[in-house]
Amino acid sequence: MKRFGITILLTSLLISAPAAAQNANVDKRVERLEQEIRAIQRKVFPGGSTRYFEPEITAESAPSSSANANTTSAVTDLIARVDALENSLANLTGQVEENGFRLKKIEDRLAATDMPAAGPTSANSSGSEPKTVTEAAPDPERVVGVAAIVKPDTGDSGEDAYIYGYRLWDAKFYPEAQAQLKKMAEDEPGHRRASFAQNLLGRAYLDDGKPALASVALYENYQKRPRGERAPDSLYFLSTALVQLGKKADACRVLAELQDVYPEAASGRLADRVTSGKAAANCK
Rank of each mutant, 00 (worst) to 15 (best):
L89N: 03
Y164G: 00
D250C: 04
A147R: 12
S276R: 14
A231C: 07
V254I: 12
V146Y: 06
D208W: 05
N87R: 15
E86G: 08
R193L: 10
G228E: 04
D77S: 13
D208M: 03
S267L: 11
E34R: 09
R269F: 12
D83M: 09
E97Y: 06
Y162M: 05
G277E: 01
T113H: 13
L181A: 01
S66V: 06
S215L: 03
R38N: 13
K2C: 10
V243C: 04
I40W: 03
S49I: 09
Y174W: 13
D250K: 02
S61K: 14
T113G: 06
K172Q: 12
A265Y: 01
E56A: 13
P46T: 00
M115C: 11
S125D: 13
A212V: 09
E36Q: 15
E31C: 07
D139R: 06
E107N: 11
N91K: 07
D108A: 15
A280M: 09
E176L: 06
N99F: 10
G94F: 01
S61F: 12
Q180D: 05
L238N: 02
A90F: 02
S239F: 04
S125V: 09
K284E: 15
A17R: 14
R29Y: 02
K224N: 10
V26E: 11
R253A: 14
G209S: 06
T76G: 06
L218P: 14
L245W: 01
N282W: 02
K104C: 00
D108L: 03
A279E: 13
R81H: 12
A251E: 05
A59G: 07
S12P: 00
Q41K: 03
S125M: 10
L14W: 10
R32C: 07
A67G: 08
V261L: 04
L245I: 06
A123W: 00
P120L: 00
N23Q: 15
V26D: 08
Q95N: 09
T71G: 09
A39T: 13
L218M: 05
L14M: 09
G155S: 03
D207T: 09
Y164P: 02
Y52N: 07
R3K: 08
L10K: 02
A20D: 13
A118I: 11
P120E: 00
T154G: 01
P116Y: 00
E86L: 05
P175C: 04
S65G: 14
D170Y: 04
D260N: 12
G277K: 02
L13F: 08
E188T: 12
A74S: 09
V144A: 14
D250A: 07
F173K: 03
N68T: 14
E220S: 07
G48S: 04
Y236H: 10
A256S: 10
D153A: 15
E31H: 11
L92I: 07
A177H: 01
V150A: 15
Y162F: 15
S12G: 10
A256M: 07
Q95V: 15
R38S: 14
K43L: 15
G94W: 02
L200F: 08
K131T: 11
V44L: 08
A148Y: 02
R32T: 15
P138T: 01
N124L: 00
I6V: 14
A265V: 09
A62W: 07
G165W: 01
V150W: 08
A280F: 05
G48T: 03
A21C: 06
S195F: 03
A280G: 07
G209R: 03
A185C: 04
Q95R: 14
D83A: 13
D187L: 12
S12K: 08
R227P: 08
L270H: 02
